[in-house]
Nucleic acid binder design. Structure first.
Lengths: 187, 187
DNA sequence: TTGATCCTGTGACAATTGTCACAAAATTCA
DNA sequence: TGAATTTTGTGACAATTGTCACAGGATCAA
């Protein structure tokens, strides 16, 4: 919760009054390793702020898991499409470690938007952040070769390498485990 | 403009009053073929609603153009990251045909959010739509082979095939022009 | 500690896609 | 219209990545 307060303080204007209203929308939730924040097929009705630990987005492609995203400390996780259109999620969101989050309830948050412009701005900000990080990873697929994606990850997000298994990392980069293993061998 | 009115009518609750406020934020803009809505290196300060025609997002990779998105009638175009963080755009947005748009001015729109919750909701809705379509294309790269991407495009968005040149389509699908040509040959 | 299980490294080979070169077809514009 | 330009099709070959198989290590629980 403290992490969230700090995050908000550093991100936008936020009055005590807005914080009071926001209180009604949020609750602390802790997930054990491999616990599910959102299960494939269910409708997403919350946004999570990751205070500690981290999560992944996992598609199940005919039994094979594909990791399309990781969410570390001080970032927001949700399935925007499922959340905003009340459609079934095509993927699951799973804790990779013991993960402490603050859960934002969708319905209450929407109500809070009407009570406080600051909260409404904060809601937009969340969406903007999720979109921006999604776009970054997306463009790496559209503009770079697998090898370039790997090299850039090494330079720009070395933290990910240390926390994620090779197998998970491979599917995140869109290459086979073996190919990733060779990328690491041939530096 | 009529297209935008219809779009709003079909999308959300919107009072006459909100429409009046929104008027101050928008203006009709028409672009000729190959004219630029947003140039690489500039800061994006508007969102465009495409009424007719269509546009593309183009990265310049060492002189080689890569098309990462197309925006057709009744959709919104903007660079979310540049718009929301006032950072320089990494790509350009260019009209592919004579394109009629409605331009939403960023500063005025932000001001309007404070005056009308409906407009604030509409602003979120725009962001959600942009995010969702971005995510769809993004996931096709993360989950499918080039061949599958092509086949799905043929089934799900045959309209694109008819309006976009092979060269542009190839970079959109992330394959070489020659490979795409062969995909089409071997049905 | 000791299996049992999961994760990783690596060789051999197959499949896919890219690159280059050039011809044919389509489009544009004066 | 007709020449110039751009776009597309295709063959040959190279490069990249995937798949399969198996061995060695690491990890975890009893």
């Amino acid at each position: 919760m403290q992490e969230l307060k700090n995050f908000i303080k550093n991100t936008i204007e936020f009055s005590e009054q807005s914080w009071g209203i926001l209180q009604n929308c949020i609750s602390e939730k802790e997930f054990k390793k491999n616990e599910t924040l959102l299960k494939e097929g269910q409708v997403c009705n919350a946004v999570y702020f990751v205070g500690s630990g981290f999560c992944k987005a996992v598609f199940n492609m005919d039994g094979k898991e594909v990791n399309t995203a990781f969410y570390f400390e001080n970032s927001f996780v949700t399935n925007v499409k499922s959340l905003t259109t009340s459609s079934k999620s095509e993927y699951s969101i799973v804790a990779c470690e013991k993960t402490k989050t603050v859960q934002f309830d969708k319905t209450r948050l929407l109500a809070a938007y009407a009570e406080s412009h600051e909260i409404a701005s904060f809601g937009r900000k969340i969406l903007e952040l999720v979109t921006a990080s999604q776009e970054e990873h997306s463009n790496s697929f559209k503009l770079q070769t697998p090898r370039q994606r790997f090299d850039n990850l090494v330079s720009n997000h070395p933290d990910i390498l240390q926390r994620v298994s090779l197998t998970q990392l491979a599917s995140y980069l869109g290459v086979s485990r073996e190919t990733l293993s060779r990328f690491r061998a041939v530096k």
